[in-house]
Design a protein around this nucleic acid. Structure first.
Lengths: 113, 113
DNA sequence: TTCGACACTTACCTTTGTGTATGTACTGGT
DNA sequence: ACCAGTACATACACAAAGGTAAGTGTCGAA
């Protein structure tokens, strides 16, 4: 879990305490469209390991941005739903999303891809 | 340097390829107000080490979000200025900043502070 | 009856990121 | 003569983050 650091004046440290984690922004992104099961998320993201996916889902749930719902069935059935609180975060993330799309070419040209 | 990963559909991977680094968002935040010298940034941020600050400044410069200006003086005088491109990124970061400020109390209560 | 799907868990290992400590070349102040 | 400040560089060390591979228990399909 990422920790809340020194007061930076702006709230960036707080935001990154929640979305800091390789796959967390992507998880939020995918959950905006509606609840997803663990396996669905895994396939949607692709290159994430099960261990880390679970771990980050739990941390996001602990922060209150999503909810884990267990249907108590066997074989197991679980899904994850974004909360209203989580939606506010996902929305704050959208401009970055858009920025990335707009500048993808430029950044890919710069970075050691 | 953070690498550009798989195409995630949204542009989040691109954005995080640029601002991924513990102090990069904060550097951008401080440079919005105008050019700053290395020492000024260091004092402004506080708990960053010189090594990492330089490193992240160079990476941000390589990505084109800021410019390093060397006055060729001795003792050395250098400052860092955000570019127009960098400003677009800093602006895309603002909603997260605001989100953090608004939800600071809630997150600090949740996190292991 | 063996296999895959489901949603995990655990132990271990590697990579990445960040920090510490020290050194450099030069100057201005005391 | 000595120390602080300037903007770094470099070697080393450490911790966190992420990945790999294996195992869990139950079910239904082949």
């Amino acid at each position: 879990m990422v920790e809340v650091g020194d007061d930076s004046g702006c709230g960036l440290d707080i935001a990154f305490a929640v979305i800091g984690g390789k796959w967390k922004p992507l998880i939020l992104y995918h959950l905006r469209a509606g609840p997803k099961r663990f396996g669905e998320l895994k396939r949607a993201i692709g290159s994430v390991s099960e261990k880390v996916l679970i771990q980050q889902l739990r941390e996001l749930a602990a922060a209150g941005v999503l909810i884990r719902r267990d249907y108590q069935q066997v074989p197991p059935r679980v899904d994850y739903t974004i909360t209203d609180f989580g939606i506010t975060l996902a929305e704050a993330l959208m401009p970055l999303c858009i920025w990335g799309v707009e500048h993808r070419a430029r950044i890919e040209a710069t970075a050691a891809v």
